[in-house]
């Protein structure tokens, strides 16, 4: 098992390195931002660019970039009008908490609702309840998240005047900020709830028809006991990793939701870096999003290998 996990991790790391290389070279090939003359930062940035090997071959530049990141966690300095002269890694570290907090609340809200709905639908398979829940899930998954965001802003913030339109600044854990976050959390949650519902229902319906469930019932367990003690336990091995995958996935934030509710998170940093053609930030965001995607898939893969020995055996040949 450890060998399998190590293998998957190593593979993901190599993939990450190759993707970073490709993107890095493509980004460095773009024309550089002109530096404003006379600004106190200009000299520093020019020296910094020289140190980062801007005039050397791309592969050497990449080597320097990787070395800086690995040894000093140095991702470069913002080199145009957007956040001029600021340390990129530090900028990123400032933005990450808001994204994480909003997404964490969204997950915490979605897990119980999503799983409960999924279980309910699975237990009532092919009945009216199941059809209703499944169709609703389908509908909710299909509709883009910004439509929910608008509906929530229109009804909860505008008509009912319960919440502010945008997220407030300040301490992330104060009551005021928490309250202003709720519309964003709700808009994010619709899709996540539907995802959990669908996953749970699919998994549970399969487990419920398996033979050990029949055995449990013949043994004399009530349907409730059998479901809770046997079926759910078996489902959990699939659902729990999917929660981890989902959580890591949403760390990357929803660009659209952050944009609408003015959440000072990584999504807005990414959009700003594109709009301002700020390549150092863009490079870091690229690596971040790639890493997030790979880690999520590795976790899901490893957990599947954990559940199903055939998968990890398959990788040994």
């Amino acid at each position: 098992m450890i060998k399998y996990a190590a293998q998957r991790l190593l593979l993901a790391l190599v993939t990450l390195l190759i993707i970073t290389l490709i993107c890095f070279v493509l980004i460095r090939m773009l024309p550089r931002a002109p530096l404003p003359p006379g600004d106190p930062h200009t000299a520093i940035i020019e020296a910094k660019r020289e140190a980062m090997g801007y005039n050397k071959p791309y592969l050497v530049q990449f080597g320097i970039f990787v070395k800086n990141v690995v040894t000093e966690w140095d991702w470069g300095i913002s080199d145009n009008t957007y956040k001029y002269g600021k340390d990129v890694a530090q900028l990123f570290a400032e933005k990450l908490p808001a994204t994480m907090v909003v997404n964490l609340y969204s997950i915490l809200l979605s897990i119980p609702i999503g799983i409960a709905l999924g279980i309910w639908a699975a237990l009532k398979k092919n009945k009216m309840t199941d059809h209703l829940i499944s169709t609703l899930t389908m509908v909710v998954i299909s509709v883009p998240s910004f439509i929910y965001a608008f509906l929530i802003q229109y009804f909860l913030s505008y008509k009912l005047d319960w919440f502010p339109f945008l997220m407030e600044g300040g301490d992330l854990f104060s009551w005021k900020v928490f309250w202003s976050m709720i519309p964003a959390v709700l808009s994010l949650s619709f899709g996540v709830i539907a995802g959990f519902t669908r996953g749970t229902r699919a998994e549970l319906t399969e487990v419920l028809t398996s033979e050990f469930m029949l055995l449990a019932r013949t043994k004399g367990l009530t349907k409730f006991q059998a479901t809770v003690r046997h079926a759910l336990k078996n489902c959990a091995v699939v659902i729990v990793p999917s929660i981890f995958g989902e959580f890591i996935g949403i760390m990357s934030g929803s660009l659209i939701i952050e944009n609408i509710f003015a959440i000072p998170g990584v999504g807005s940093l990414y959009l700003d870096s594109i709009n301002h053609r700020n390549y150092p930030i863009f490079t870091m965001m690229t690596v971040f999003y790639t890493a997030i995607g790979l880690v999520a898939s590795v976790i899901v893969d490893i957990s599947y290998g954990f559940i199903d020995p055939r998968i990890r055996m398959g990788s040994k040949k």
Binding site: L16, I19, M29, F282, Y289
Partner: peptide, 19 residues
Amino acid sequence: SDILSGMPFMVVITLFQLH
């Protein structure tokens, strides 16, 4: 295809637009 699918779509779109 693993490497290509590991690239975030937003990044691909942006790079194509820029280049």
